[in-house]
Design a protein around this nucleic acid. Structure first.
Lengths: 206, 206
DNA sequence: GTCTATACGGTGATAGAC
DNA sequence: GTCTATCACCGTATAGAC
């Protein structure tokens, strides 16, 4: 592959990423992606046979970013549970601060075609058995049932993701016009959410 | 308006609701709505001039369902805060159990066109000043700042909504194939989330 | 009010020149 | 590898008969 090929391909992927994430599969237009990449529509089809094939690339990529690295984070044994939670929440929120539209994009596309999901999991390197093992181990550590621990994990993830997924609503209802106020709020949540989660554990352990 | 007119109009709205909520504005097809309503495309335009006008009706309606009735719930003074929280969470989750795709629909459409949101708020009867007043009052009661109370409210809402918005993902990763398992999980959350929220308050009040 | 037929623009995809 | 031109189709919207 020549330098130029690689360049154009990357240029297309970058443009497609931007447009697909903002508009979704249904709302995106090949023309807009071409414009964004500074090329013409025909070239898109030359590199990626179809709109859907191009979309698949992007979706696969973004799904990989979306999955929390909980397996690595929650299973390393040399730090305290409290520190694990703080690290998890902080890192996860950081990913969304860098990719603000990732949550809404994933939610949108996952609802558009729920049946095809599992094939994407495999390619994303998501190991379902490993995840369940992590939860089982966490359950022992917390002296909770598997089901309770599952609620616990989903609570933590909900608190990280929803402020991004629902941003347009929340921001217009509860914040001022100044965008930086919401960004500050999101930054705060790295500690707020962790504190929140940890406080519920302290209650339970009493 | 005759009985028949009313009937057809309602039939169209019902069909449009189903299709738009599932597919979104971009993914929905007028033909599919017509089929669902048992009529033809032309009649859709006879009743509602355009696809977008029909969509607006549905979006407006659904946005109204989506807004938590927190103003009424959180401001009535004759029950304890703990009971208010339990009632809020339980009612809010019940709405989503009855309308499982409401969260993903709202998130999708709100990201598609964030700028137009405020005009919909007014028509939904959403009173921004009243909401802020409720939070201010709650802040006093909890001995917290406005900003902390805002986090608190958003936490509570996140925990209610995300399991619906992210259902296809969560279900495939952490649950069995049996759909009823997830429904049971959602039902459980009426108490789990309330307990969770209330437990953090007890910590803070010590 | 409801239908069939059709206009009209847009969109993904391809052919073919360079 | 990249472009222009064009195709074939689909989707919204309208015209006109009943």
């Amino acid at each position: 592959m020549t330098e130029q090929q690689k360049d154009t391909e990357q240029q297309i992927l970058k443009a497609a990423r931007k447009v697909f994430i903002e508009k979704g599969l249904d709302g995106a237009r090949m023309q807009e992606i071409a414009d964004e990449a500074g090329i013409n529509k025909a070239l898109l089809h030359y590199y990626f046979r179809s709109k859907y094939k191009l979309f698949e690339m992007i979706f696969q990529e973004e799904l990989g970013k979306f999955f929390p690295k909980m397996v690595t984070l929650m299973s390393s044994g040399d730090i305290s549970l409290e520190d694990k939670i703080r690290a998890f929440v902080s890192n996860y929120i950081s990913i969304f601060i860098s990719n603000p539209f990732l949550p809404s994009f994933i939610i949108k596309e996952v609802h558009r075609d729920p049946d095809n999901l599992k094939s994407f999991f495999v390619k994303s390197g998501l190991d379902l058995n490993m995840i369940r093992l992590v939860i089982t181990n966490l359950a022992k550590q917390l002296n909770m049932s598997f089901e309770e621990t599952r609620h616990f994990m989903i609570n933590m993830i909900s608190l990280c993701i929803f402020p991004f997924a629902g941003r347009p609503l929340i921001e217009k209802i509860l914040f001022s016009e100044d965008k930086s106020e919401y960004n500050k709020f999101l930054e705060e949540r790295k500690t707020v959410v962790a504190d929140y989660i940890i406080s519920t554990l302290k209650i339970n352990s009493k």
